[in-house]
Each structure stands twice: as structure tokens, then as C-alpha cells.
């Protein structure tokens, strides 16, 4: 249903519509796709992922607007493959030369989601952080047990904090497993950079965020002209009601 500008202004104070949230259902799996991000992924009605997408920060931690160049979805055999291409806008209308191009590919079926991000610097690009950002929901996650696999393969067992952690709850994350309900386990696997977790409830975000590039490293940093950055995240959910796995 199209909404008049006057009504939109009454609702949200601006005539600018937001980009469309596409709702998708794959058997027990529901999610929305919006501007190159998967959001609100639930399995059998239980949210397992608040969101995943590319976040490109500028040299002052501001978030770059992205200008979409392609946004496609192909369904086949109970799976959907998304391809999203965009470029970083360094001017208001995005008409100028862009220093950074990104391509995000997401493939999802009834058991897993794979997201791969490729960044290509056309000229040197200064950023505080550029990469994939994963948001985990709060319900079923706060206080739940979590196993964190570090880059040396060692596994740390802990819990998502109940009281909001002033610093990062987990560092050096290659993999992560938790159970939002007793019946279901979620496994995440990260490639392409060192990831760590922030308790975003500090800023009233309703999520734990897992992001690339440790905050302890210098920022901003440079992606050199011609350089390509590739990162990927795989998210699997498995039914753990039965004894066998």
C-alpha cells in the first residue's frame, strides 16, 4: 500500500521512505532482507539472528551511506541466493567516484546461512572498521551458555552476560555456539579477520554485536588501492532435541 507524503510525515517526520523490507519464508525459517542485510532470522518462531550485513565506517566512526548498484534474489530448491552490490558514497548523491566497492553474497536454506563479503578498494580507503557485522538477539541469548572458539583452536566456555559488560565480553572469535532454546543450537563460524563481541546494550541496541578487527588495533587504518578484503560468516542451526546429532 502506498502512503502519501503527508501521512509519512505525520508518522515519521520525513517524506523519505525506507528501503523495502522483503519478508522471506523457507519452511520453518523466516527472515527479512533489506538493503543487503539479513534481519530477524527465526527458526520455528525463535529468533536466532537479529541481523547480519556489511558496515563501512569512516575515519571518525561515522557510518558510510551505501549506494546500491545491484540487489538480486534467486530461489531454487528450498534455498535463496542474494547478491548485493554497492559502493561507498563520498558525496551526497553518490554520483562521484567511489573509493570502495562491496559485494555481499548470502545463501540461505532450511539449515544454514552463508554470507560472504568482498571489498575492493579503487583508491586507498581510510576507515575505522569495514566488514561484516553480526547481531545476536537478546531473548534466549542473555545469560545463556556460549562456547567461543579462538583462532588458535582453543575453546572458551562462558556465558552471555546478564549485567551489561562495559568492555567486550569475548575476544578473538573464530567460532561461537549457543542454544537460544534447549531444543536448538546455533553455530557461527567466521573467516577473513579477527572478530570480537561488544555488548551493544550499552548504547540501548537490542543486540550483542560481533564485528571484525579488534578495537585494540590502531584506527583508523587504510585499505590500500587495489586491495581486496574478503570475509565470511556461516550460521547453522541444529535441532538438539534428539540424542543423536
Amino acid at each position: 500500500m502506498s502512503v502519501s507524503e503527508a501521512v509519512r510525515i505525520r508518522r515519521v517526520g520525513t517524506p523519505t521512505p525506507e528501503t523495502v523490507r522483503e519478508r522471506h519464508v523457507l519452511g520453518p525459517v523466516c527472515f527479512t532482507w533489506q538493503s543487503g542485510a539479513i534481519r530477524h532470522l527465526s527458526v520455528d518462531g525463535v529468533e536466532v539472528l537479529r541481523g547480519i550485513g556489511a558496515v563501512i565506517r569512516d575515519a571518525n566512526w561515522g557510518t558510510h551511506a551505501l549506494h546500491t548498484e545491484a540487489d538480486e534474489a534467486h530461489s531454487s530448491d528450498g534455498a535463496i541466493a542474494f547478491t548485493y552490490c554497492a559502493r561507498v558514497a563520498t558525496d551526497g548523491d553518490g554520483s562521484g567516484e567511489s573509493p570502495l566497492a562491496l559485494e555481499l553474497q548470502a545463501h540461505i536454506d532450511a539449515t544454514e546461512l552463508d554470507v560472504r563479503l568482498t571489498l575492493t578498494a579503487r583508491e586507498h580507503f581510510v576507515t575505522c572498521r569495514s566488514g561484516l557485522s553480526v547481531l545476536l538477539p537478546l531473548a534466549g541469548v542473555v545469560e545463556s551458555a556460549v562456547a567461543v572458539e579462538h583462532s588458535d583452536g582453543l575453546v572458551e566456555k562462558g556465558h552471555f552476560p546478564r549485567h551489561i559488560s562495559p568492555s567486550q565480553p569475548f575476544f578473538d572469535i573464530r567460532g561461537l555456539s549457543f542454544a537460544p532454546t534447549p531444543e536448538r543450537t546455533v553455530d557461527l563460524h567466521f573467516e577473513g579477520d579477527v572478530f570480537e563481541m561488544e555488548d551493544q546494550r550499552n548504547w540501548s541496541d537490542a543486540s550483542f554485536k560481533i564485528y571484525n578487527r579488534p578495537l585494540a588495533l590502531p584506527s583508523p587504518y587504510r585499505i590500500e588501492a587495489g586491495e581486496t578484503v574478503t570475509q565470511s560468516v556461516r550460521l547453522r542451526w541444529r535441532d538438539t532435541t534428539g540424542a543423536a546429532q
Binding site: 542473555v142 546478564r162 549485567h163 546494550r201 537490542a206
Partner: peptide, 12 residues
Amino acid sequence: ETLESLPFIFES
């Protein structure tokens, strides 16, 4: 959605 985080902020 930020409203969802407020009880955690208040308790913390």
C-alpha cells in the same frame, strides 16, 4: 527495538 534493551540497562 532499542526499547527491548532498556530493562537490561535499568537493571545493570
